[in-house]
Amino acid sequence: MPNSELMPIGAFALRSGLTSSALRFYADTGLLLPAEVDPATGYRYYDADQLERATTLRRLREIAMPLAGVGAVLAAGTEEAARLLDEHVAKIEEDAAAARRGAAVIRSALGGDTLGTLIAVLKGPVLAEAVEQVLTATATATATGPTHDPASAVLAGLHVEAGDEAVTLTATDRYRLSTRTLVPVRTAEQAWTGTVDGTDLRNAVADVRRSALVRVEAVPHGIRLRLSGREDRHCRVMPEEFPDHRSLLASLSEVTTRAAVAKGALLRALEEHPGERPVLRLSGRGVRVQAPDDELSGIRLPAAVTGEDLRIRFEMTTLYAAVSTAIGPDVLLDLRGPHQPVTIRSADRGDLTTLTMPVTFDH
């Protein structure tokens, strides 16, 4: 039983100003671990002494401090923390100056053209990277997607959800689901949701990447990308309904095994794997990439593995793409057993998340 002086996660969330989901994420990244976890229920409890750290963490995230910077500030002394904060503010000011320059170019390029409904203003290089990363999960980007089925045409698109604080991009081929959230320079005039044609976006990516800022507007039957010093690009909106991915995310079972492994080492092991369906064997000794019929050999990778030992098998095309698009040098694998979706995300940045389905051993 938990100590009666400890707070359950809901009460701690109210007092710290962090949501329960944010507290779980910061626990997973090691920035704010619970004081106690009930081994029977998995409920998390926090101590009042952790409120100061939680409040500081929240304030750092409110000024857009990345997770790596947050960890450095929390671990630093007073003078070092002040220096890190000054560097972060200077970077924000540089970005704001770049935004003002981009806005001047946009105003000049707009001329007398009628504006559509603003979805968001985003940094072009960031948007281009996110589109390329998430579009790898579309049906046209894999060998497994049923692109011949007209009812599955929407699986070739990129689902866009724009709100007051963020723009979320999602794609799925029903074997893999990738999602990334972007923080806009300027938010939507009103909430907007739609699925944008993936081919149109791919064709626009090169110009988007070369534009400092991109104004994304909703227009009849599509979206318009207004680019700095370049011609506008129009992308069609698909009429089909996008799969209910939020229900899938909400219904995921508890994580039973978690592994943090170097992204480059895992990709090299997959590249050297001779077959089409590699097996990952996870234990306290690390991660081993094996062939299905070879229990003894394979490539062993150093990894921090917690939870149950697990043996799980994937399609190479699905797993490699999911790992290769992760942000940063390390990836975090959240596993729920040999037949459940695996969550693959960056170990220090959670804004790109990919769900990958394993295959059975008799596939």
Rank of each mutant, 00 (worst) to 15 (best):
S251L: 13
H273R: 06
T354Q: 07
V342R: 07
T144H: 11
A171L: 08
I9W: 00
T193C: 10
G337Q: 06
D47W: 04
D38Y: 10
L333G: 00
H245F: 15
G111Y: 05
G17Q: 08
E165V: 13
I299D: 01
V131W: 08
G77Y: 05
R300G: 01
A137Y: 03
L67S: 13
L155Q: 10
Y43G: 02
V196K: 04
H339Q: 14
S4N: 07
E52H: 10
E315R: 13
Q340V: 00
L282P: 11
Y46D: 13
D334H: 06
L301F: 06
D149W: 03
A27K: 06
T356G: 04
Y175H: 15
L84W: 04
D294Q: 01
I312Y: 10
D49I: 11
E80V: 12
T360W: 05
L127S: 09
G194Y: 09
D334V: 00
E5V: 05
M316S: 08
R107H: 12
T114N: 00
N203H: 14
M7T: 06
A151L: 13
L177Q: 13
R277H: 14
P66H: 09
T117M: 10
A139L: 05
R230P: 00
A103K: 07
A13N: 05
T353W: 02
L182S: 02
Y175P: 02
T257E: 11
H234F: 14
E161F: 07
R174Y: 11
T353M: 11
A322L: 09
T168R: 15
S20F: 01
A97T: 13
R233D: 06
T187F: 08
I63L: 15
